[in-house]
């Protein structure tokens, strides 16, 4: 089975994010860049499926040259090769999904697994858009994937419980937190990754309309919530909630 895993480079989730004074973006000095945590879960799941059934895991990113760092980490985890679609332009979700659909058309994977959202723009769009562009089934927010001979079954984390859906491959699956616990890259894995194929394609060469229909105009810090005060006892807490905050 051939599995394509789109991967995004994001600031480490533990980083404190600061907006630049002119609102043009976030301050990137002292930011540690990592694979988006949901993408890491996607890589892990792809590797587990491959380990069970043999096949190939191909990573793909749409970004700048330095995104190679995260692709290399994914290769060190065990993926077979990587594709970087290079662009310096800010792209919107439609353009990125369009690029991924084009790559999927060339690579012809049986399955695409990706994170449900990136923890920077928190948009939660790419997997669903990609599934529609390819005319494939989608299973977002997956917490369990079972690939059967005929049908694939996915358990999804939805409001109020767990939903199970089924379909035939090819399909797009997006990962939720509880799908698996991603492995760390081993030292031999890191050594091997250096020799694995990393193909670069210029986004402009794909013949797609990449002009963004969504543009980020400005960024601002949200209004800061003021810390309140400490109370000395449970009795005082219940009393202030009742008489001062008037919420109970």
């Amino acid at each position: 089975m051939k599995i394509l895993v789109p991967v995004k480079r994001v600031p480490d989730p533990a980083t404190t994010i600061r907006v630049l004074p002119d609102g043009s973006g976030i301050a990137t000095d002292n930011v540690k860049w990592v694979i988006n945590p949901f993408c890491e879960i996607a890589i892990e799941e792809a590797l587990r499926i491959k380990e069970k059934q043999t096949g190939e895991v191909v990573l793909v990113s749409v970004g700048q040259t330095n995104w190679q760092e995260q692709l290399r980490t994914g290769l060190a985890m065990g993926a077979d090769r990587a594709i970087l679609v290079k662009t310096d332009a800010p792209l919107d979700s439609l353009a990125i999904a369009g690029i991924l659909a084009k790559i999927a058309g060339d690579e012809k994977p049986d399955l695409i697994i990706l994170g449900k959202q990136a923890i920077d723009d928190d948009a939660n769009q790419i997997g669903q858009m990609l599934a529609e562009m390819l005319g494939w089934p989608q299973a977002t927010f997956a917490s369990k994937i079972e690939i059967g001979a005929d049908k694939t079954t996915v358990v999804r984390e939805v409001d109020g419980g767990l939903e199970t859906i089924a379909f035939k491959l090819p399909a797009v699956i997006t990962t939720d937190l509880r799908l698996n616990e991603p492995r760390y890259a081993s030292l031999p894995g890191i050594m091997k990754a250096r020799k694995k194929e990393m193909k670069e394609i210029a986004a402009d060469s794909l013949g797609l309309d990449l002009a963004p229909k969504l543009k980020v105009k400005t960024m601002a810090a949200p209004p800061k919530r003021q810390a309140g005060r400490k109370v000395a006892s449970v009795q005082e807490l219940v009393a202030v909630l009742h008489t001062e905050a008037k919420v109970i």
Binding site: L94, I126, A131, Q138, E157
Partner: peptide
């Protein structure tokens, strides 16, 4: 942006070729 809204609307946006702002 419920679980259903999040699942459906990006697919809908792609079908229409329309931009989408989430949440």
């Amino acid at each position: 942006a419920t679980a259903m809204g999040k699942d459906l609307f990006p697919r809908l946006a792609a079908r229409l070729g329309a931009p989408m702002a989430s949440e």
